[in-house]
Simulated assay, not measured.
Amino acid sequence: MGQCLEYSPNTSHPNFANRMWSGANQPSIVGEIVTALSNTSNCTFESVPVATLMEKYMIGQMLDIVGFKNGEGQMTTGSSNANMIAMMVARNQTLKEAKKQRLFNQKPLLAFVNKDAH
């Protein structure tokens, strides 16, 4: 354990800059403790009903901030997952029957991305 910590970056250090990590604060530490104690994740309402309701509340608050009425949203586990979900939403909007008929015998779909996309 000691070597693991010794060779890991100190993400709480003021000079550590990353888009996905930052220093800990009291609410985030409490969240980590609750997550560890409950031994679950926010996968389904059945496994974590309170967390699901909290997520819906937070999405509602964010929609209010930007002025979206009757909006929807989803919290994702990261940017790659968010991009994949966005692509599926775009597909389902473009091909309304894709979820029922699947993509067999459909026109091929194309997406334009930057060369640095992952």
Score class of each variant (00 low, 15 high):
residue 13 H to A: 00
residue 117 A to Y: 13
residue 83 N to Y: 13
residue 27 P to W: 03
residue 34 V to N: 07
residue 16 F to M: 02
residue 102 R to M: 09
residue 34 V to A: 07
residue 96 K to F: 12
residue 21 W to R: 03
residue 86 A to H: 03
residue 4 C to R: 15
residue 108 P to D: 00
residue 90 A to G: 06
residue 57 Y to I: 00
residue 41 S to A: 11
residue 53 L to T: 03
residue 55 E to T: 03
residue 80 S to G: 06
residue 76 T to I: 00
residue 8 S to C: 09
residue 94 T to E: 06
residue 26 Q to I: 11
residue 90 A to S: 08
residue 6 E to C: 08
residue 83 N to D: 07
residue 57 Y to D: 12
residue 105 N to S: 00
residue 21 W to L: 08
residue 88 M to Q: 11
residue 13 H to P: 05
residue 72 E to V: 10
residue 93 Q to E: 15
residue 82 A to N: 07
residue 98 A to G: 04
residue 53 L to E: 07
residue 23 G to A: 06
residue 90 A to Q: 09
residue 50 V to P: 06
residue 73 G to I: 00
residue 46 E to A: 04
residue 54 M to L: 08
residue 2 G to K: 15
residue 105 N to V: 03
residue 59 I to D: 00
residue 26 Q to P: 00
residue 44 T to S: 12
residue 54 M to N: 11
residue 118 H to M: 13
residue 85 I to W: 12
residue 95 L to W: 02
residue 94 T to L: 13
residue 28 S to N: 04
residue 52 T to S: 01
residue 53 L to S: 07
residue 44 T to N: 13
residue 99 K to M: 15
residue 47 S to I: 14
residue 38 S to Q: 11
residue 5 L to V: 11
residue 28 S to V: 01
residue 70 N to W: 04
residue 32 E to W: 13
residue 51 A to L: 06
residue 84 M to H: 06
residue 66 V to S: 02
residue 33 I to A: 08
residue 65 I to C: 01
residue 48 V to Q: 13
residue 49 P to G: 02
residue 110 L to S: 12
residue 6 E to Q: 15
residue 7 Y to V: 14
residue 74 Q to M: 02
residue 74 Q to P: 03
residue 38 S to M: 10
residue 20 M to F: 15
residue 68 F to I: 06
residue 28 S to E: 04
residue 74 Q to S: 03
residue 58 M to A: 05
residue 17 A to V: 14
residue 106 Q to V: 02
residue 106 Q to G: 08
residue 98 A to P: 09
residue 61 Q to V: 10
residue 29 I to F: 11
residue 58 M to Q: 04
residue 56 K to R: 07
residue 114 N to K: 12
residue 100 K to S: 10
residue 49 P to Q: 07
residue 62 M to E: 04
residue 72 E to A: 04
residue 65 I to Y: 05
residue 23 G to T: 05
residue 84 M to Y: 11
residue 46 E to N: 07
residue 58 M to R: 13
residue 89 V to T: 10
residue 53 L to Q: 07
residue 116 D to R: 11
residue 45 F to K: 04
residue 17 A to H: 15
residue 33 I to N: 12
residue 107 K to M: 12
residue 82 A to L: 11
residue 48 V to S: 09
residue 20 M to H: 15
residue 4 C to D: 14
residue 52 T to L: 08
residue 99 K to H: 06
residue 25 N to H: 09
residue 10 N to D: 14
residue 103 L to N: 02
residue 60 G to P: 03
residue 35 T to K: 10
residue 7 Y to G: 10
residue 36 A to Q: 12
residue 70 N to P: 09
residue 61 Q to Y: 09
residue 31 G to W: 06
residue 112 F to D: 08
residue 113 V to M: 05
residue 24 A to M: 12
residue 115 K to E: 04
residue 98 A to K: 07
residue 24 A to K: 12
residue 87 M to Q: 01
residue 37 L to Y: 01
residue 85 I to S: 01
residue 18 N to Y: 05
residue 75 M to L: 10
residue 13 H to G: 01
